[in-house]
Each structure stands twice: as structure tokens, then as C-alpha cells.
Design a protein around this nucleic acid. Structure first.
Lengths: 232, 232
DNA sequence: CATTGTGAGATTGAATACAATCGCCTTATG
DNA sequence: CATAAGGCGATTGTATTCAATCTCACAATG
């Protein structure tokens, strides 16, 4: 299995892992909550073994902290790290966009896209359409999930499992921040996705990198302004 | 337990996790090797349960890939991602250095350093001394481990568990690359650590960020030059 | 009064046992 | 001969059981 933000629900362990992560991100399990394996096992109707495995994974993902024989607690929401996480995300997603565009450019000269590219690209098209429809019908609450799927899709196009894994980790934290502090993202941000996608399709690595960087930078500024506005 | 590059060996699970990671990084378990839980359990004299937990964690760390009911294999060494990983690391470590310096500056105005800062700072001093001694006596083979500990120590000073966790993940990959391709790092690189430490101690956030960025950038160029030289 | 030791209860860590699934090889069939 | 169906061995996923450790309350002691 890939370390994923949303697993395929193929095993109880994966389901529980997704469910716990979700409960943490959306506040059902607040920061600092003590988590006992037995209670989770009872809640999901399974034994402690898959629960333990899920907790070990969530620990590496940064959502849970554990000490031997002392149990697990929900991590603190990384509000103090928000700006730095966005900064890292800028570098990270600039790289994924650049790589994706390079891969597209390579397709022009050699044969054509392979099945992996084609499949991912098709899913991205669907995501973009879904997002536009959500914007059109005013269902902005669908955007956060679609937004993550778009950015992870671009990472998938980059064909770098290292970068994709890092983005998953950062995206999880940023989703956590949004869920806790500012709610859904803006509509204007969504519209920029088409431009990024076009740059990648055109094989223009420089434009893809630049547009993705600006896009993430805009999100960063938007997040910070809302957050400080909320504070002041 | 913290998701760590080197756990405290407090439980068999943590020991096995460190051991497997080490075997992967240093090539004892080559990329693509199929890993069966029973063989690992036999090798380390424990049952499959802690082995499974270690594998779930290593999966999120990116060293192992698994599919349900199909088993685990050692991931590919991320050679293609090297330059992008360094780019992300630049942004990441610039942030940790900046935060560490800010925290030091805060100590000047308010009372003094807390125990966490003091403890970490003391360990960093020891690491710097050890590294200098290793350089002096020509034992450059000790530098990679000390190098990781230095950079993780700076991250610890930043007091951001998110950034520290991300650096652990990236550091693991970069260590993997070095072990596989170019051997130990240069001596000149080590000497730059003192300057970074001094900038942090002085509370100069701008200088700390700038020096750390240049330091990582130098590592990046050094890695790439050796690698391409080896290729051509 | 603060501190240290101790014991019970709760909780985690690991071992064993069993069920579910996959991969491959055999075999029947057009 | 190519190919699809089915069964068997190997391996993973989960449940159950027991051992090891921690937490916390409470008492003994300086």
C-alpha cells in the first residue's frame, strides 16, 4: 500500500487509519485526546492488532504521538508551523509541476503518453470538471477535497513517489489547519488550476513551475490574511 | 514515540524498524527485494506482530511498499528525485534555521533559554566537537551520521515537530542516496556548521536562514557534480 | 508538609492460533 | 497448441491470549 491520505479501504486496518485521520483533521478527536487501542477496536468492531498498525502509521504521518507502554495522544494542530509548511509546499509543488511538464514534453518527441500518464491525466480532467461544477452550483464545501486530489494528481504526474509522499504529508497538515481555522478555500484559487494543467500539458516546465509556485503562494497569503484577520 | 530516523531502541518493534531501515539504506536489502514477515521475525527472534508494525511505519517513511495480501518490497532508491529532494530540503532547512534563530533571539529579551533549548543546544555542541575531531583524525566515515544529527538538532531547536518530521523523511532519502552513490560527504561542508550555529546563537534569523540555505545548496551541487561525474 | 515507596488497576507489547487472500501450477478444453 | 478454470501452497490479515510496563492513588517516613 502507498502511504496515502485516503487509502483504498481494502483492509480494516486501512479503513481505520483513514477514519482516525479524518476524525483528527475534522476535530472529532481534538488535540491532546488520549487514544486507547481498546476503545478504537471496540468502536470499529475489530481487534487491537489492526488498530495498532494504523496508529504506527499515523504516528509517522504526524497525527498521533506515542510513548512505549504509555499510549497514544492526538498531536497538536501545527498552527505555528503554518507559514513554514506553506513555504516548503511552494518548493515541493514547484518541483512536481516542473517534473510533470517535463514528462509531458518528453511525450511529444517519443511516441506518446504511457498508460500511467493517461490514466492520471484523465482523472485530473474529471477533478477539474467536478470542481468547476461545484463552483458553479455554489457547493464550495466540496472544494477542499477536490483541491487535495488535484494537487496529489499533479504530484502523481511527476512520477516521483518521494515527492508525492512528502506532499501527502504536508497536505494532511494543511487540511488540518484549514479545517480548524479558516474553513473552505476561495473560489478564485480553484480557477488557477486550469492554467497549471495547461502549462503541464504544453510541456512548458518553466511556466508550470512558475504558475504552481504562484498558486501555492497565493494560498499561503490567503491563509495568513484570514488567520491574522481572525486574530486581530 | 516520535517518528524518528533512529529510535531509542526501547521496544523490539523500534529496534527492528531501525534495523530494517538501516539495512535498506546501506544496501543489505537492495531495492526490489521481497520482504516476508516470517523471515524478518525469524531473523530478529520475535513474532510477526512487531515486524508488521515496523513495516507499516517504514511504508509511510517511504522505504517499503506493500499491497494487501501481496506482501512488501524494498522501494526504489530515489535517484531521479535527488535534485528535487535537495530543493525541498533547502526550503525546509532554511525555515528550521530561521525559526531556531528567532527562538534564540526571544531568549535574549525574556529571561533565558528553557531546558529544551539548553539540552538540545548542548547536544549540538557535542556533535560539532565530535565532527571536528573526526575531521582532524581523518575518520570521515563518521561524518554522515553526525551530519544528520546536526541538521536534526537544528530542526529540534526550531521546535516545530512538523518540520522536524519532514526533515527526518527527507534526510533518510538523502542518506540513502549518499550510501548508494557517492560515499561520504566532503570535509569542507562540515566546517560550515559552526557558522550556522553561530548565526542561530546570535539570534540572527536572516543570517541563519541564508547560511543554512547556502550550506544545503552546496551539498546539492556537490552531490550532483559527483553523480554526473560518475555517470559521464 | 513534602517526598518517597508500594501496590492495584489499566493499558500497551508481544506470541500464538486461525481465517482470508493471492500466485502459481496443473489440468481440462476449444 | 493456446487458454481458461480450479486447486494447492505460501503469505498476509486478524483475533485471542498472556506478559510487561506504566499511571495513579495512598500510605509510610524524614
Amino acid at each position: 500500500m502507498q502511504p496515502s491520505l485516503v487509502n483504498g479501504d481494502s483492509t480494516p486496518r486501512a479503513r481505520v487509519q483513514d477514519e482516525i485521520r479524518r476524525d483528527i483533521i475534522f476535530g472529532t478527536l481534538p488535540a491532546g485526546t488520549r487514544i486507547t487501542e481498546a476503545s478504537l477496536a471496540a468502536k470499529y468492531g475489530i481487534s487491537r492488532v489492526p488498530v495498532r498498525e494504523a496508529l504506527r502509521a499515523l504516528e509517522v504521518e504526524g497525527f498521533v504521538e506515542s510513548k512505549p507502554f504509555a499510549g497514544s495522544t492526538v498531536s497538536e494542530i501545527p498552527v505555528d508551523d503554518a507559514d513554514d509548511l506553506f513555504a516548503v509546499r511552494e518548493a515541493l509543488e514547484a518541483a512536481t509541476a516542473r517534473r510533470a511538464a517535463r514528462r509531458a514534453a518528453a511525450h511529444f518527441s517519443s511516441g506518446g503518453p504511457d498508460s500511467h500518464w493517461w490514466e492520471t491525466r484523465r482523472e485530473l480532467a474529471a477533478i477539474l470538471d467536478e470542481g468547476d461544477e461545484a463552483v458553479g452550483s455554489g457547493q464550495v464545501e466540496l472544494l477542499p477535497e477536490l483541491n487535495i486530489r488535484f494537487h496529489l494528481g499533479i504530484a502523481e504526474l511527476s512520477r516521483s513517489s518521494s515527492l508525492t509522499a512528502l506532499l501527502r504529508q504536508i497536505a494532511g497538515k494543511i487540511e488540518w489547519l484549514y479545517a480548524a481555522d479558516v474553513g473552505s478555500r476561495g473560489i478564485r484559487s480553484w480557477a488557477e488550476h486550469r492554467g497549471i494543467m495547461a502549462a503541464i500539458d504544453a510541456g512548458n516546465a518553466q511556466a508550470a513551475e512558475q504558475e504552481m509556485g504562484a498558486h501555492v503562494h497565493g494560498s499561503r497569503l490567503g491563509y495568513l490574511s484570514r488567520f491574522t484577520e481572525k486574530d486581530g
